[in-house]
Design a protein around this nucleic acid. Structure first.
Lengths: 114, 114
DNA sequence: TTGATACTGTAGCATTGACTTAAGTATTGA
DNA sequence: TCAATACTTAAGTCAATGCTACAGTATCAA
């Protein structure tokens, strides 16, 4: 780890790096679900799912609320957007320097061609 | 791990989950760089950077080519887009069900209000 | 040809991560 | 009240990660 104090983005990327947790996010993108509902399609114990859930919640990607004995989980779209934006930013930078190269090439094409 | 045969998306999310590797991606989004240039701002040995680089390459996020004794690394925007798209998809699903709820609420507001 | 540069590759090691099992605690429904 | 349900928490295990150190190899420059 580069920084000892984990940044929000760190936690989010970290959380999404596990296929099981991404499966949970996929499920939650279709609507809220209970812990058992999240666990149902996954090849692991309820206990493991609860642990994954905690990681998703700490990353801000999921929030949950307990009513009676059922905990209902919801996807937090804002955290998803933050991750999306980080990537979009990198792409923007990359396209910028690519455009600059194209500009350079078109401006110097006559002089540079033999 | 949920699946033994790692899917491309797995590798990409996995690769981006490390702050050091994300720093390398940030650097490469501003243009190609040599291994030493990538290593320069990072608080780790060249050896560690090479190992991170391998992970980024296996995830398809970075490509590199050696000329003489210098390896030049480039960001692969297509892989970045795949990650971005996965998140965009989840957001789309989430918005869909949210819209459906709103539609339901507005359609039933007269009957449901006391 | 010789020393510096720019990696490359491997071994080892401490930590973290992804589980399971097992033993709880509230809630609910009969 | 009492069993089933829906989690919750704590160990403990074992593999994967993120390093470092160290020993190369292949250029390049003088």
């Amino acid at each position: 780890m580069l920084q000892y104090q984990a940044q929000p983005l760190d936690l989010a990327f970290q959380a999404l790096s596990d296929p099981g947790r991404r499966a949970m996010v996929e499920r939650l993108s279709r609507g809220p679900a209970s812990v058992s509902e999240l666990a149902e399609p996954l090849p692991m114990t309820l206990s493991a799912v609860v642990q994954h859930l905690k990681i998703l919640e700490e990353a801000g990607l999921v929030s949950s609320r307990k009513t009676g004995r059922v905990r209902t989980c919801t996807l937090e779209i804002a955290a998803m957007t933050k991750v999306e934006s980080w990537i979009a930013e990198r792409k923007r930078f990359w396209n910028q320097q690519y455009d600059q190269l194209e500009t350079y090439l078109s401006e110097n094409s006559q002089e540079e061609s033999h």
